[in-house]
Simulated assay, not measured.
Amino acid sequence: MSRESYQRLLDDLRADVVGMGDLVVERLDAALTALETNDEALAREVIDGDDEINELYLSLESDCIDLFALQQPVASDLRFVAASFKIITDLERVGDLATNLGAYALATDRRLAPEVDVDTIGREATDMIERSLDAYEREDVAACREIAADDDDLDALCQQASETVARDLIEREGDGDDLWSVEQLLDDVSRLLLTVRDLERVGDHAVNVAARTLYMVETDSELLY
């Protein structure tokens, strides 16, 4: 195979990874909207769409394996294919987290701890994923480091939200609710805490994408550990 043809395959892989990322971001955005607006139809659309993301992941995984096995990439090409392989795994997991959010949207009572701004946390996490994909596409190492730094801010938002939920639960204690109401409250608390946790994990996956991109470009493992 000529170098020109081989380079075309690498370019196609990069475009396909970015395309998968765009789809994942779209589903994540839809899940957040479903949470914010209690849109059951949109939530079910996100959940039902997970199979499409999984199938896309498997297709790109196969492409990466073919490039490893058949083309035997070396040096920078090898790092690029390896990074792409890792990145699609992170994207698939973000797709799973979007599906989780869709499920929470179907069940969570948003009257609990209304001061917890899930939408703002979610938009921050989504922005990190979008920027990490852009950094991968453009091989922007400065952006990779910025994304990793911004993850501390997202973690702080998530920690604050979790503490608010816990405080709200404590303040409700002893209100005289019956056992069924208490169980329902605990279910809602659990789902809200899981929502915050999953959004924090979206940020972690954004950092993973940035870390793999940084290593791909500069063989710098600074963000990998």
Rank of each mutant, 00 (worst) to 15 (best):
D119L: 08
T120N: 10
G122R: 04
M128V: 11
I129Q: 00
R131S: 13
L133Y: 05
D134F: 15
A135H: 01
R138W: 09
V141E: 00
V141P: 04
A143S: 10
C144N: 13
E146M: 14
E146Q: 13
E146H: 04
I147Q: 00
A149W: 12
D151P: 05
D153W: 12
D153G: 15
L154Q: 00
L154M: 10
D155H: 14
C158D: 07
C158L: 13
Q160E: 02
Q160G: 08
Q160R: 12
A161H: 05
E163Q: 15
T164D: 04
R167L: 14
R167Q: 14
D168W: 12
I170N: 02
E171Y: 03
R172I: 06
E173D: 03
G174V: 09
G174I: 08
D175R: 01
G176Q: 02
D177M: 03
D177P: 02
W180N: 11
S181N: 10
V182L: 11
L186Q: 06
D187I: 13
D188S: 08
V189F: 08
L192H: 00
L193V: 09
L193W: 06
T195M: 01
R197Q: 09
D198S: 08
E200G: 02
V202I: 12
D204G: 06
H205P: 09
V207D: 01
T213R: 09
L214T: 06
Y215E: 04
M216N: 09
V217A: 04
